[in-house]
């Protein structure tokens, strides 16, 4: 009895999977391998990739390791996807150096690689669809200067000094300040690993050492939440101009309540869309630029609910 039921279930599952398998086998297939999976940011990238797949009538899969440390799991995904004879691969490497042998294999088999987000640190990718973080952070610097009146002290907390995004956002903000606003004195940058608690401690120490600090820039979600915590704990809400990066519920709430002046948001949906779009172009042999800027936006209390902005924010 039990066995009979089991066999039935197996047959049904087989049939469904086989149908899926055949359907996938016929179309142009592009695996998208990201750096994460369940985070809101990556799910937004997935939405964009799926939209492009519908627009261009290609089949994609979207995969990523559970967290951004699982380099070997990401390589397993890449290797399995190579076995499926894809037409192109969209890839955001967790560790570019570790992925090189597999990417060379793809190159040898003439499978175009499209980098996205942090991309792949090598000349193998045909193109990379990513936020121009230097320009985005420079915009944050402009907004900061405007809000504090062009002079005073500004604290900077970045997530790290090794990742591409950390380096670009740091140099983008600092470079713009140095070039255009000589009267603004930068405190830091300090590096908090994107950890809220660590960033809180850093921000508090910076305020203690510089009671006249006028503003804070945080390089990613964790950094800016840390700053917000520090400002709240020291009862300075509204007295310090806080500018952040990305979204997330806490940050959006802070912007709505006025504790945070505004933030730069990337366009994760655009990243996913443009990566798949570039893959389709590469497959068709159409030219693609070496870098695709997927765009960024400044948002604050006034435009947080605009449909165009709300679409790229995540909770």
């Amino acid at each position: 009895m039990r066995r009979k039921r089991l066999v039935t279930i197996l047959i049904v599952v087989t049939a469904v999977l086989m149908l899926g398998g055949f359907a996938a086998a016929q179309a142009i297939y592009i695996p998208v391998i990201s750096k994460g999976f369940q985070h809101q940011f990556w799910q937004a990238v997935r939405l964009g990739a799926e939209k492009a797949a519908r627009d261009y009538k290609v089949v994609i899969t979207f995969e990523g390791p559970e967290n951004e440390s699982m380099v070997d799991k990401q390589l397993d995904m890449l290797q399995t996807d190579l076995a499926k004879n894809p037409s192109a691969i969209c890839f955001a490497a967790l560790d570019s150096k570790a992925a090189i042998p597999l990417l060379q294999e793809a190159k040898k088999r003439k499978i175009p690689i499209i980098g996205f987000d942090s991309g792949v640190d090598s000349d193998i990718p045909v193109t990379t669809a990513a936020t121009d973080n230097v320009a985005a952070a420079a915009l944050a610097a402009d907004k900061m200067a405007q809000l504090i009146g062009g002079s005073g002290k500004v604290g900077v907390i970045i997530h790290d000094q090794t990742s591409r995004t950390g380096i670009d956002r740091g140099t983008g903000f600092l470079g713009q300040m140095k070039k255009k606003y000589p009267n603004i004195q930068i405190i830091g940058p300090q590096y908090g690993g994107g950890d809220q608690l660590k960033s809180t401690d850093l921000a508090k120490a910076m305020i203690q050492a510089n009671p006249d600090i006028k503003g804070f820039f945080g390089g990613n979600e964790g950094s800016i939440i840390g700053v917000l915590n520090a400002v709240k704990e020291l009862n300075l809400v509204g007295k310090v101009v806080v500018i952040g990066y990305d979204s997330g519920k806490q940050q959006l709430d802070a912007i709505r309540s006025g504790a945070e002046a505004g933030a730069i948001t990337q366009d994760p949906i655009g990243i996913g869309y443009k990566a798949v779009e570039a893959a389709v172009k590469a497959i068709r042999g159409q030219p693609v630029p070496k870098n695709i800027d997927t765009g960024f936006h400044w948002f604050d209390k006034t435009n947080i609910d605009d449909p165009a902005i709300a679409a790229v924010l995540y909770n």
């Binding site: 087989t14 086989m18 086998a25 397993d76 190579l82 076995a83």
Partner: peptide, 25 residues
């Protein structure tokens, strides 16, 4: 057996190597 029937890409030397290396650690 099931996967081999369901997809021509499964039972290939390349994919077998992918499975072996994914299992090793």
């Amino acid at each position: 057996v099931f996967y081999s029937l369901a997809s021509p890409n499964f039972f290939k030397f390349e994919n077998m190597v992918a499975i072996l290396i994914a299992t090793a650690v």
